[in-house]
Write a protein that binds this DNA or RNA. Structure first.
Lengths: 354, 354
DNA sequence: GTGAAAGCGCTAACAT
DNA sequence: ATGTTAGCGCTTTCAC
């Protein structure tokens, strides 16, 4: 605490803001106080006041302190519009979320929102992510763009990335030349499959997540791991949602040789699998062990207690923000495509050794 | 379609924008074209261009048409910062969401985001809703505020509402003098309880949602309906989440006289109840009928198929936006507290008549 | 109906 | 290290 949101200029420790009660917990409108007022009250020029407030070099320490104190006393808040207009660059970062109802995307979005506030920039979110949201942001001259699960069409992402610092979170876009941060799908799927193998399962099925690159990587890694174990892969085609999991459970349990373990391409699918298994009269994990992917909050809940491959959201987000910030001060920086290693979180749904 | 986001000035039918392909599907940065350029190209003054673009009265129809066409041709995009600075009012509406991981709040947020784009205003979202988000928005001189499930402390809401047009969605804040849109909790709880009664259930339990006003109203309505039916209410104290539902299921099924139906204060609780019941070996709806509240997307999924009291999100949101818009052009308008009637959506989880 | 002029509140050369 | 001078791109009186 002790920092003021959106006013990086005042972020230096000024010793005047009580972090307990006081200003921090009040909501006050723009006082009507301008930089001019602060300068006048502090007995300096507008430029010096501006420099001090923005922590620009070339201001004597004591002058700066005095100006800051004055600003504080007058309850000064910079006018963002004026700042943006004069400096020709805003401190807003647009976050476009494809499907905010997808818990994993919501998780990423929330983390971005929070992480951004630490940087002196602030987030503008659009949750019905599509091209028009991106365009609206561009029109607002935002400084950078964070794309989460949207838009589907890679073309739009590519064009966006040519206009302003852009990073895509959750998918690897190296091929398209767009900066991105994603999880290592291959490693994640291996982790899950190998764990099931280690528990002694032989009939391990996989419910896929569709035809996206990530889903295909997960499926491929599952297949490879199975083959390495000398086992026959069993794949039920699915999509990243609950209903697909439910349908897959039906298909899988209808086989003559029923699987004793199911690795779902994501947690939503796993939830569908579990719910449907219960309906069919099978017990998880006693009859069937289940593992998911993502680690959405629901997975950790007591009645679900889903073993899953956790995508490290905080790591991914901080990498993403870092990427945007880097590019912001060096547009010529090399394009980075970061891949974060996921980890297996063992809970009840995977059961114990057979 | 045929409208340009964020540029209400150009929103008049200009006949120049192809709604299929064309400009609408391209992303282009700010052309660098200013109002000055448009005016010059159209052979008029900056003021006239400004008026025409904003649909101000006092511009001859043909002049206006000409200016609009020119702007279009030059691919002009107004500089939002300049507009805000000069007019001293922005077209941004802040949406603060308390918990974006709550599907119901996400539903409201998404709807708001979409609805707002139709109004000429645009949404700025903060998803880690707390007072500081509100303050940050105020500092940005947003035009209005939509609060969704946040902040907990009513004081902050009240102070926010004094600063700028504010509406709270999802809770009734009449007592606090803050405009709000909410669902009729009493009606909703009655609907659910009466339906269970009608099916022939006698041992109907309720899992409450805590101590908030809404949760208390739901519980009260449940109790009253039970008493009217000559039955003894059975209440398990809970909170609006999955784990509470799970715990409540344990408690309830441990009773000597087990309930044959459970009305959960919201869908998340219901999900917890259902999951736990499955674990305990009970079948839904055969052994226990379950009804929720909210109608989150998960409720409609095949394996869950939850009967629930649907809060009419689109109605609530359009009422909320309408409220903000009304107050925007008349700060003295009477305070409105709208209550929307929910409806019972019958699915599999409530079973059939006993 | 139209144009000229004066800012909005700030940043960024350019001086000193 | 500090002050002076121009704008940033738009809206908005105020004249005509």
């Amino acid at each position: 605490m002790g920092r003021i949101q959106l006013v990086p200029s005042l972020a230096v420790d000024s010793g005047g803001w009580t972090s307990s009660k006081g200003y921090m917990n009040e909501i006050r409108t723009h006082s009507g106080v301008t930089l001019e007022d602060v300068a006048k009250a502090a007995g300096v020029s507008r430029s010096q006041a501006s420099r001090a407030l923005r922590n620009d070099p070339g201001v004597r320490e004591d002058t700066k302190a005095h100006i800051l104190a004055t600003a504080l006393k007058l309850n000064y808040t910079p006018n963002l519009a004026a700042q943006t207009l004069a400096s020709r660059q805003s401190r807003a970062i647009g976050i476009v979320v494809g499907d905010i109802l997808n818990p994993f995307e919501a998780l990423l979005a929330r983390e971005c929102d929070q992480a951004l506030r630490q940087t002196g920039y602030f987030a503008m979110l659009a949750v019905d992510g599509n091209v028009s949201s991106v365009r609206a942001f561009v029109d607002q001259r935002i400084a950078g763009l964070v794309l989460i699960g949207t838009p589907e069409e890679t073309d739009d992402i590519v064009s966006a990335s040519k206009l302003l610092p852009t990073v895509y979170v959750g998918r690897d876009l190296k091929a398209e030349g767009v900066e991105s941060v994603s999880s290592d799908d291959t490693l994640g799927a291996r982790l899950a499959t190998e764990y099931l193998l280690k528990l002694g399962h032989r009939e391990i099925a996989h419910v896929s997540g569709g035809h996206g690159a990530g889903a295909r990587r997960r499926e491929a890694a599952y297949r490879e791991t199975m083959r390495e174990g000398g086992l026959q892969p069993i794949v039920a085609a699915g999509r990243y949602n609950v209903d697909a999991g439910s349908a897959a459970a039906d298909t899988l349990m209808a086989r003559k040789k029923r699987p004793t373990a199911i690795f779902a391409a994501n947690d939503l699918i796993a939830l569908g699998v579990i719910s449907r298994l219960a309906w069919l009269g099978y017990r998880v994990p006693d009859d069937v062990a289940v593992i998911g992917f993502d680690d959405i909050p629901l997975a950790a809940s007591e009645p679900i207690s889903l073993t899953t491959v956790r995508q490290k959201v905080p790591d991914m987000v901080s990498a993403a923000i870092d990427t945007v910030m880097k590019r912001l001060d060096d547009p010529a920086a090399p394009i980075r495509n970061m891949v974060v290693a996921p980890e297996l979180i063992v809970r009840r749904s995977s059961g114990t050794e057979l």
